[in-house]
Amino acid sequence: MKEIVVCGEALVDIVTTSPAPSPGRLAPMQPALGGGPFNVAVTLGRLGSSVSFLSRVSTDHLGDEILRALSASGVGLSMCQRGDEPTTLAVATIGDDGAASYSFYTDGTADRLVADPGPLPGTVGAVCFGTLSMVLEPGVSVYESVMRRAHAEGTLVMIDPNIRPAVIADPDAYRRRFAGWMQHTDIVKVSDEDAAWLAQGSAGTGVRDWLDAGVSAVVMSAGADGLRVTTERLEVSVPAPHVQVVDTIGAGDTVGGALLHWLSAHSALNPSSVADLDAPGWQTALGFAAAAAAVTVSRPGADPPWAGEQVTD
């Protein structure tokens, strides 16, 4: 089985789910491990993929817990770097519809200072990028170099921008940079909200632009409306399973991880196989990813499913 390398940040979410009890008092807050790339890696490890996490993690107590959680979910740590800078924090507020809004504390944190690991091992079949790590310097330039090298070597590249407007100081510059990544990317996984935000620019930031630039497949998540993939040859949609939604934290990350797992399990973890996947194949792949995400949204926080836990392939 080829290895999947997930690149990007791990952080601590401080989650509040209820209003303040009275003026001058804060609502109860619950810390939870998270970050888009962290959640993708955990999803892959729990489903049984061979996966490693490429990041810089703090040597503080929170960083120790991040590594412990990754290891417990079956994620390899050989590519993790350590630094004495603090762990990134995110404050998440859950709305009545289960959706989360975020604010971030990222200045001088460990994950921003990741060093270039050099060429990846020949055992690597795919690399995945996304969220804050593809916004904040100097880390984004490091990950961009990893992306370009991997794609040039024929390794499958997936990106999930997981747009967080609060940390994007120059939206137009980000959109231009994102458009430049498309020639080095095989799969773009976006939410419908991500796609709408990106389309506000004029730098080739729409689905057709991405496909024209060389992307093989654009997978779009639309919450309760399910998942859709668009390629040069086809468009396939699957509905979202009906579940009681507790919150949506980690749902999109679960989709990305589950999709990569399905491709690996079906010997399709390479650019040519993704480009050639037919409609029935995509139907099955998206159905698997949607079922995995349904487990995640049915319980609080980013808690992806383990192999066999209400997920079939």
Rank of each mutant, 00 (worst) to 15 (best):
residue 224 A to K: 09
residue 225 D to S: 08
residue 225 D to L: 02
residue 226 G to L: 06
residue 227 L to W: 03
residue 228 R to F: 00
residue 228 R to L: 02
residue 229 V to I: 11
residue 229 V to K: 05
residue 229 V to Q: 11
residue 230 T to S: 11
residue 230 T to M: 02
residue 232 E to K: 15
residue 235 E to V: 13
residue 235 E to S: 15
residue 236 V to D: 10
residue 237 S to P: 01
residue 238 V to W: 08
residue 239 P to H: 04
residue 240 A to D: 02
residue 240 A to W: 04
residue 242 H to E: 14
residue 244 Q to N: 10
residue 246 V to L: 03
residue 247 D to E: 06
residue 248 T to C: 05
residue 248 T to L: 04
residue 249 I to M: 06
residue 250 G to S: 03
residue 250 G to Q: 03
residue 251 A to G: 00
residue 251 A to S: 02
residue 251 A to P: 00
residue 252 G to D: 01
residue 252 G to I: 04
residue 252 G to K: 02
residue 253 D to Q: 04
residue 255 V to S: 02
residue 257 G to A: 06
residue 257 G to T: 07
residue 257 G to F: 06
residue 258 A to W: 01
residue 258 A to T: 01
residue 259 L to W: 08
residue 259 L to M: 10
residue 260 L to V: 04
residue 260 L to F: 05
residue 260 L to Q: 05
residue 260 L to K: 09
residue 260 L to H: 05
residue 261 H to G: 03
residue 262 W to Y: 14
residue 262 W to A: 08
residue 262 W to V: 05
residue 263 L to V: 11
residue 263 L to A: 12
residue 263 L to T: 10
residue 263 L to N: 12
residue 264 S to K: 11
residue 264 S to H: 13
residue 265 A to E: 13
residue 265 A to Y: 03
residue 265 A to L: 06
residue 265 A to T: 11
residue 266 H to L: 09
residue 269 L to G: 10
residue 270 N to C: 14
residue 270 N to A: 12
residue 270 N to G: 14
residue 272 S to V: 15
residue 273 S to K: 10
residue 274 V to P: 10
residue 274 V to F: 07
residue 275 A to L: 12
residue 275 A to N: 12
residue 276 D to W: 12
residue 276 D to I: 09
residue 278 D to G: 14
residue 278 D to C: 12
residue 279 A to D: 15
residue 280 P to N: 13
residue 280 P to L: 12
residue 281 G to N: 10
residue 281 G to K: 12
residue 283 Q to P: 08
residue 283 Q to H: 15
residue 284 T to V: 13
residue 284 T to M: 12
residue 285 A to T: 11
residue 285 A to M: 06
residue 287 G to R: 09
residue 287 G to C: 04
residue 288 F to K: 08
residue 288 F to C: 15
residue 289 A to T: 04
residue 289 A to K: 02
residue 291 A to F: 05
residue 292 A to F: 11
residue 292 A to I: 10
residue 293 A to G: 02
residue 293 A to L: 04
residue 296 T to P: 01
residue 296 T to D: 04
residue 296 T to Q: 03
residue 297 V to Q: 00
residue 297 V to W: 00
residue 298 S to T: 07
residue 298 S to N: 06
residue 298 S to D: 05
residue 299 R to P: 05
residue 299 R to A: 06
residue 301 G to W: 07
residue 301 G to K: 08
residue 301 G to Y: 06
residue 303 D to V: 03
residue 303 D to E: 01
